[in-house]
């Protein structure tokens, strides 16, 4: 095979796309959103679970679930999105569980974070790394 510039570009582009490089993390705004939610309180780990696929077939529609035994509110952030906010779930008196599922948009491979405010006023956090694949032909 002749190794031409054009071939090299084509193959390089293919390799880049396959590697699924992580998106630039907009850490500052995620931290700000968390600080606004917690009022600057310390965040531990514990009574919060975030379920997300390890590999999402398409960043447009990624199913996630948050659940906790005693959460009053749960903030969900997509740390690698241009704006990290996803949703804030507030559970009312008739919530049978402190859990909810939804479908979210992820701009690329990144960490999804859930921060819960528990009944005792403390905050706990869980995160999940989601690889977002860039499709095949796209058609």
């Amino acid at each position: 095979m002749e190794f031409t510039r054009r071939n090299a570009i084509a193959m390089g582009a293919g390799a880049l796309l396959v590697a699924g490089l992580p998106m630039r993390v907009s850490a500052a705004t995620s931290d700000e959103a968390i600080a606004a939610f917690t009022g600057g309180a310390e965040i531990g780990t514990g009574d919060i679970k975030l379920t997300a696929p390890e590999i999402a077939e398409n960043g447009n529609t990624v199913p996630i679930e948050v659940s906790s035994g005693t959460a009053v509110e749960i903030l969900v952030l997509a740390t690698g999105n241009p704006t990290p906010g996803v949703a804030t779930f507030s559970f009312g008196k008739l919530a049978a569980s402190r859990s909810a599922s939804t479908r979210i948009r992820l701009a690329g491979t990144q960490d999804v974070v859930a921060v819960a405010k528990l009944e005792d006023g403390s905050f706990v956090q869980a995160s999940s790394a989601v690889k977002v694949t860039i499709g095949g032909c796209g058609g």
Binding site: G14, L17, G20, E57, T133, G135, G136, C137
Partner: peptide, 8 residues
């Protein structure tokens, strides 16, 4: 087989 990051 894979085509880029997707299944054919």
């Amino acid at each position: 087989n894979m085509i880029r990051a997707d299944h054919l």
